[in-house]
């Protein structure tokens, strides 16, 4: 069984107040050297059967229509383990 990971991030031009809050907290906590933080979501999908083009196409559709709101978010789809046969 293969795992496909969908990462969803706010588009670069969209303000990310949560990421900014984390970034400010880092400074407060004494962690230096981080100039910016953006926060996103990671979905791990356990796929039944082979992760072929067909399956990846379906997952792309899931990501585009449901996991991400493409008005404000970008997403990437990648196979994490197992081969993509």
């Amino acid at each position: 069984m293969a795992r496909v990971v969908v990462d969803v991030m706010l588009k670069p031009e969209i303000l990310d107040p949560q990421g900014q809050a984390v970034s400010r907290a880092l400074v407060r906590l004494g962690f230096d050297g981080i100039s910016d933080v953006r926060q996103g979501k990671r979905f791990e999908l356990e796929v039944e059967g082979p992760v072929d083009d067909d399956a990846l196409g379906r997952i792309h559709k899931i990501a585009e229509s449901f996991l991400a709101n493409t008005v404000i978010e970008d997403f990437t789809v990648r196979v994490e383990n197992g081969d993509a046969s």
Binding site: L10, I14, L15, P17, Q18, A21, N69, V71, I72
Partner: peptide, 10 residues
């Protein structure tokens, strides 16, 4: 159109 996001002041 558009979307609603986290309040800017959190």
């Amino acid at each position: 159109p558009g979307a609603l996001t986290r309040n800017d002041h959190l």
